[in-house]
Each structure stands twice: as structure tokens, then as C-alpha cells.
Amino acid sequence: MKLPSNYNPADILLAGFSWLSGLLVLLCFGYLFADIFSNGYAHLDWQFITTAPENAGRDGGIAPMIISTTILLFFALLFSLPIGIFSAIYLAEYTSYEHRFARLLRYALNTLAAVPSIVMGMFGFAFFVIILQIGFSLLAGALTLAIMILPLLIRNIEDSLRNIPHTYRLNAAALGLSQVRTIFQILLPMAKHGIAMAVVLSVGRAMAETAALLFTAGYVMRMPDSLMDSGRSLSVHIFDLSMNVPGGEKAAYATTIVLLFSILIINAATVLLSNQITRRSPM
């Protein structure tokens, strides 16, 4: 919204500082982007994406990391999406904001969302890796990620269910539909874009995760044979290359571009989905 512009000293000062910060932000982040692309571009080719790393990652490609990341994301979602959908249904369809158990649940979710990822990693290490004896493995990593994205999933799915106008529930009831059928055949299909949005956001969150994976999925570089095998995610690969592998910068830059590109795709998907939601939402 445009405010009337009139030039007194205070206004000019505020405008000046605002423009300064805005341009600074643009400049810094623009530089970051440009730097990463200009440095990583040369190293990035088809072979980089499709071959295994050599020489501790200095040469070769990142195929195993792409596979490991995909497996981690897939299984994290596989574990947490059903739980997320059912919990969201419970919160949105069966409880009001004042309901006691719902408040407890909401409180737990907020807390869970605030747990630092390194702490989540410690828990995953102590519980999944040691106590359950899963060992450093994609499975342990995926389970830890699943817990991390649960709050995000539930909150977004709950919102999209609550945004469905109440009349649809009354309508369904007036047609004599049972609540279960109303939820599965009418409300969930109506919320499908919102659910997709929740999934996309969670994938973005999980893909950005590093610290929690270090002690759960481990950082073995080769192609994982099974879910019980240790695997290195793209983010962990960047960390390892820049910290422990002198001369790994080029590969790290190129890996960063791959990761950024995935994040950009996810972002575009989010924008598209939220446009869909605002357009399709029945008033």
C-alpha cells in the first residue's frame, strides 16, 4: 500500500536507510549467488551428476550423494506423511482450539519445531543408531528427518483442512455421509494442493538439513546398497569437501549449484502451488 509521500527530514532519513538496507541485501545475496555460480559452473557437467566421486571427492561426481539424498527424503516422507495427515485430520476435524488434548499436541509440535537440528541429531544418534542398533544408516537418518518435518507437515495440512468452508461438511452430513467418508472423499481431495504444498515445504526443509544427518546417516561416500547402509547427503558432502578435503572447493561449488538448483525447483513449486490454492479455493 502506498502512503502519501511528503518530504520532511525524518522521512528522507527513513527512506534513505531503507533503500540502503534493501540495496545492501540485494548486493550481498546477489554476490553470493553470482560467486557460487561463476565458480562452480565450469566443474558442473553431466558426468559430475552421474558418476561416483574419486580422490575423496576432489574428482569424479556426486551420483551416490544424489541417490542417498533422494532415499533419505523419500523415506522421511514415507514415515511422516501418514502420521502428519492423520494428526492434521484429528486437529482440524475433531478438535477445537480449546480442546485439551489438541492444545497439548499443538504445544508438543511447536516445541518439536524449535528443537535445534544438532540436538535432533544427538537424539537420533542415541536412540536410532545406538539403542535400536540400526547403526549409521539411511534408515536412521530418514527416521530423524521424519521427526523433524512432522511439525511442518501437520501445521500446513491442518491449515489447508481448516480453510475448507464449513458448508462442505454440513453439505456432506446433509447427504447422510459418514464422517470418515466425508474426510477421505471430500475434504482430503479438496485439500490436495495444500497437502502437496506441505510436502514440498518439508522436502525443502529436509534437503537443507545437515547437522542432524552427520550422526545418523553418517557420511560414507559410496553408493548405498540398502537402507541399512550409511549414506552421505548432498549437504553433508558440501560440508565435508570444504572442511576436510583440501582442494575440494571446485567440487563443493558444483555440488552447491546442484543443491541450489533443487531448492529453486522446490521454491518454484511452492509458488505455483500457492497460486493454485488461492485461485481454486472456493471463497
Binding site: 553470493l32 560467486d35 557460487i36 534437503m207 537443507a208 572447493e249 552447491t256 541450489l260 531448492i263
Partner: peptide, 15 residues
């Protein structure tokens, strides 16, 4: 906001 923190860390190391 969606970019992994490790990317910023890496860029910090490099620049």
C-alpha cells in the same frame, strides 16, 4: 530462506 545453512557456511569459508 530455503537455502541450506551449509551453503552459507561453505561460502563463508571461501569468501
Amino acid at each position: 530462506a530455503g537455502i541450506p545453512a551449509v551453503v552459507y557456511g561453505f561460502w563463508g569459508v571461501m569468501v
